[in-house]
């Protein structure tokens, strides 16, 4: 039997959830015995080369590229998992959701302490190559269907490991109190 295929992506997140995945330490060797990796920043594969079984998504959607990547994952992955606060709720990036996009851009490029004297022409980044900001930061499930949610900021490495091995082996996920308490 061929090994299940795993893909991962970080959208509007901080890569902290991916770092937490690395916190499984030496079990990463066990992991590569259990799964093959496809598109993922961990192996730097940029494009899907085949259908996958499990997709892990870190971060919500703050621009159209995030939406594009997320939809691509939905198309290629049988099971899609929202990993961490940002994917599930929008997280820290969603703090801008109460403000108009123009306010955020002006603060960043015109009025911010590091830009206000450096950008006399008041240039906004508008190259066609750049992604366009969305009106707000969307959690993943407001864009595509998500199958599972792993909470945490970041989710504990034990939770990620437990969830992955449960998914791969088809076991029920065990959730001891220690891995889902956040206080």
């Amino acid at each position: 039997m061929s090994k299940p295929i795993l893909a991962t992506a970080s959208l509007a997140g901080c890569f902290g959830c991916h770092m937490s995945l690395l916190d499984i330490d030496e079990r990463i060797l066990e992991l590569i015995e259990l799964v093959d990796f496809n598109k993922s920043p961990i192996n730097d594969i940029k494009k899907f080369t085949r259908p996958c079984d499990i997709g892990l998504i870190e971060g919500g959607c703050c621009n159209n590229d995030n939406v594009h990547v997320l939809k691509d994952f939905r198309k290629h992955c049988k099971i899609l998992v929202s990993v961490g606060e940002c994917a599930i709720m929008g997280g820290l990036p969603a703090l801008r959701n109460g403000l108009p996009v123009s306010d955020c851009l002006e603060e960043a490029y015109l009025n911010g302490p590091s830009t206000k004297d450096e950008n006399p022409e008041g240039i906004m980044p508008n190259d066609v190559e750049l992604p366009i900001l969305l009106d707000k930061v969307y959690p993943c499930h407001e864009v595509v269907k998500m199958d599972y949610y792993l909470p945490g900021c970041p989710p504990d490495a034990e939770l990620l490991w437990g969830a992955l091995t449960a998914l791969i082996k088809g076991n029920e996920l065990e959730l001891p109190y220690e891995v889902i308490k956040y206080d």
Partner: peptide
Amino acid sequence: HKAIREGSDAVGR
């Protein structure tokens, strides 16, 4: 398309 309208307007795209 609705979600990118505001962001496009803000930078003139």
